[in-house]
Write a protein that binds this DNA or RNA. Structure first.
Lengths: 102, 102
DNA sequence: TTCATAGTTTAAAAACTATCGAACTAAAAA
DNA sequence: TTTTTAGTTCGATAGTTTTTAAACTATGAA
């Protein structure tokens, strides 16, 4: 029997993924961001979203990172802007029906 | 126009309720507790649940309080024990489909 | 009454989270 | 080339969360 180092690199398990998602959702500013993105039915730049909820740009950036790392949003960079949208696949998989009730 | 003091007691709004629920769900021990209670399809005492996931009784008590205050569980005291069960109404209202996928 | 059991509360430490301004980076506009 | 714009990163700070041991409460058993 051979042991490979990659064997002990424990894969992030499903509960840890869920915990990360719930942490990302457990903040009023981020719920607002999600609601804005849902209603927009498309992409918005980080700046446009940040403006609407009145937080500093560094705080906004922090929230976008939190959402992105939880797999709840994806971003696309175009010229100077960064466009954010919801990852509907993640919402569907882990929180079916949630977006409609938000 | 008359003003009543209760008018300015701002009602805990829906987002705050959701944030509290997501905070309660954002912990591996509590996800385990919820899974145990779901599979039990009935009540268990706090002690019985705590034993199954190997945490100290004060930590267990803290987690039960967190879940209860988020409206995710209810408890009934009988003799020396306190029996916990899920509040399916809350799960249905805020997280339809979640329990099945947990 | 005394002892044991089940659970809560408290206090404190350690880890984590949210926020902001300032400095920074990269790309577009002048 | 220089300046402006959009966003990220850093450092500091204030507040929150998780955990444990110890003290406490309430109930049932001996």
């Amino acid at each position: 029997m051979m042991y490979y180092s990659f064997m002990i690199i424990e894969q992030r398990n499903e509960d840890q993924i869920k915990v990360q998602i719930f942490k990302a959702l457990a903040d009023e500013s981020r719920l607002e961001i999600i609601r804005i993105l849902r209603d927009q039915k498309g992409e918005l730049s980080c700046g446009e979203v940040g403006e609407r909820i009145n937080i500093s740009k560094s705080t906004a950036s922090y929230h976008f990172k939190t959402l992105r790392e939880a797999g709840l949003t994806s971003t696309r960079k175009e010229t100077r802007n960064k466009y954010v949208k919801l990852r509907l696949d993640t919402f569907e998989k882990y929180l079916p029906g949630f977006l409609d009730s938000l």
